[in-house]
Nucleic acid binder design. Structure first.
Lengths: 151, 151
DNA sequence: CAGTATCCTCGAGGATACTG
DNA sequence: CAGTATCCTCGAGGATACTG
């Protein structure tokens, strides 16, 4: 029985990349995470062409990671805010940043992110929900899969 | 005093995207994480054109996330294995997968990754190194930065 | 200010044939 | 098997001028 199969069928990573896997989307999102919500501010901060910024923002809104929130009437103006789904991308940004800091920093001081509430550094870890130990990449398996089937 | 500034200067996320921010590199890496180490296996599994796979593998080796390991002489053949830097990309893949599972799954059962040692599910979290509580994206700050400066 | 409208370029991606 | 060599296409990205 034939099924309609999308290119990203059963592939969460490819599906995620379909949303934020281009050259700009993740950088636009990082801008919003940093607190830049408006078109011209994002454009100036990122140095992205305005037509490209338009298409990225539309796509991100369409995919439900950003939403337009009016901040002024007459003329009506919107800013772009993270949705819950957008906020859930935070681990992706944090892990990418930590990797870049560790392996691409060229001796520069790494970015230190801190927990706003208590001011101490944060870290992104993959851990076991039960034994709570940090899990190494080589010790991750798919449930009910053979040894080498992971991710 | 003028300095030579690369486009990704002081920007770990852009620097990381420079290595794995194209359409294929991360999927190639996922293949290797899954245990597919050889050229033709990766090509068949991913459906990538062979010339593209060649350039991706070379780039990933050049950037130090994969390394060639001989597995046969006469003719000499190599497989591609993760370096430590490559293995450190695991949180990026895990967080992307979890996001895709949560927000792009279309009702499909999410991929469950388990800790090989004990068999229980794993999770990727961002937490405070001190109070060890899970930190929400909206409560992340850059050290010594104003409220809205994060990531 | 927040876009839209045009036009252009270049290179990533892809198909395919070939090779030690 | 693990690539290399060619050739091609298309669209992402970019520059720029314009607009309500």
């Amino acid at each position: 029985m034939a099924m309609t199969v999308s290119p990203t069928e059963g592939d969460s990573i490819a599906a995620a990349l379909d949303v934020i896997g281009d050259r700009w989307s993740l950088l636009v999102l990082r801008g919003v995470f940093r607190g830049t919500y408006r078109f011209s501010d994002l454009r100036d901060e990122l140095g992205i062409a305005s037509n490209l910024l338009t298409t990225r923002l539309c796509r991100l809104v369409d995919h439900g990671v950003l939403e337009k929130v009016p901040y002024q009437q007459r003329p009506q103006r919107f800013e772009y805010r993270l949705t819950d789904a957008g906020r859930d991308l935070s681990p992706v940004l944090v892990s990418l940043m930590q990797w870049g800091d560790t392996h691409r920093s060229d001796g520069e001081a790494p970015t230190v992110l801190v927990h706003g509430e208590c001011g101490w550094p944060i870290e992104n870890i993959t851990r076991c929900t039960t034994c709570h130990t940090s899990v190494d990449a080589t010790d991750i398996r798919k449930q009910d899969a053979r040894k080498q089937d992971m991710l």
